[in-house]
Amino acid sequence: MSRTRIDPVLRALPAWLVPLAMLAVTEFAMRASGIESDGLARPSEVATALLGLIGNGEIVLRTAETIGAVTIGVAVGGTLGLLLGVWMGLSPTAARLASLTVELVRPIPPVAIIPLMMLIYGLGIKMEAAIIAFACFWPMLLLSRDAVLGVEPQLIEVSRMLGLPRRQQITKIALPAALPRIFAALRLTLGIALIVAVTTEIAANPIGIGYAIISAGLSLRPEVMYAFLFWLAILGWLLNTGLVAMHQHLFGAAYGEAPR
């Protein structure tokens, strides 16, 4: 009955009119002025192009390529980073010993690796996956290390009071306690992986959504470029929302709210 009871989603609804209105204004202005540009497309043309891309299966193909590279890259780089990170979290000595090496290699921007991987693997999904793996390794390493380091010291003390052997201390106490933050790290890493994948495709690699965007732009088909951009925004939004929901589902009851 009172205004405060209304669902927040419902309350935000009018504000969603803003992007819609912006699209409508663009459509109208472009029709009215009869503007023709290689870089602009009317929203209606973009929608038609999007339907066409769905119809001829191109969008599925491009998405599969990008997602494939992301999956392989995260699987390899993420796993390595996770293992090393957990190890470094459990053993502060290991963390200190590796610190200088980490600090020297980590600042290299992942895109600097693009030419190197081109040299080693040529073009294709392998080189892209390798770049993604490099990009994912570092955040996963540092975040999972911090996740393990961040485990409540009291919990560790409890496990020692219980007289659990070291192995069980790790498997029964430390890892489960670090799990939500590790999952959050995975979410972040997946976001980075998608960005790196698309960036690699735009810069050099002729596969996936990124290549579809830049080749459409260069071949003067702006409506296709914007259609892919739109799809990419949706994909990124779906990925994040899906992972947040999954976090909530997995850990919500036992650990509380997911960090956004």
Partner: peptide
């Protein structure tokens, strides 16, 4: 904040590098 947040939320997931093709096409 109220009126702009959905728009910002929509634009946020786009990688910055996708601006390059758009910029090249436009300018």
């Amino acid at each position: 904040r109220y009126w702009l947040s959905p728009t910002l939320e929509l634009l946020r997931p786009l990688p910055a590098s996708t601006l390059l093709p758009v910029g090249i096409a436009l300018f």
